[in-house]
Amino acid sequence: MTKATITVNGKPVTAEIEGRTLLVDFLREKAHKTGTHVGCDTSQCGACVVHVNGVAVKSCTMFAAEADGAEVTTIEGMAGADGSLSAIQAAFQEHHGLQCGFCTPGMIMSASALLKENPKPTEAEIRHYLEGNICRCTGYHNIVKAIMAASGQDVTSIAAE
């Protein structure tokens, strides 16, 4: 066992970890941030996407030891201090970008990484960027629409079919 300190949503969290402790387990069990989900545990589904030092990673496929000293942002870090939703979260709500909600934390974190790199993505760019995030409810359509809306673009052209 060794100690690791990871800054989670701005607050340092120090805990004992094993070499094999995954970042997602640190976040859920040591930092008690359970918004980050474990869907597949095989780096396919993207429900566990968080930002490590500003870039999106799958936290089920990174060891906590490798994030020692890093800044991590989870879904809990996306809302304002007063609990108000971020623009992306509000757009998911407005455009019905979620049904069961299991994939949503990863979708929001991936969407946020995309808009940081590419503030006005096309529909095709959004779909390509979300290749690593699987949703079994929505058929993706409203997720794509929500991300376009969050980027300030007109979404009437991608009306629901």
């Binding site: 780096s43 993207g46 999106a56 990673v57 799958k58 496929t61 990484a113 690593g132 995030n133």
Partner: peptide, 9 residues
């Protein structure tokens, strides 16, 4: 290669 999160690692 893979997807964006995989490419970041």
């Amino acid at each position: 290669i893979g997807d964006p999160a995989v490419r970041n690692r």
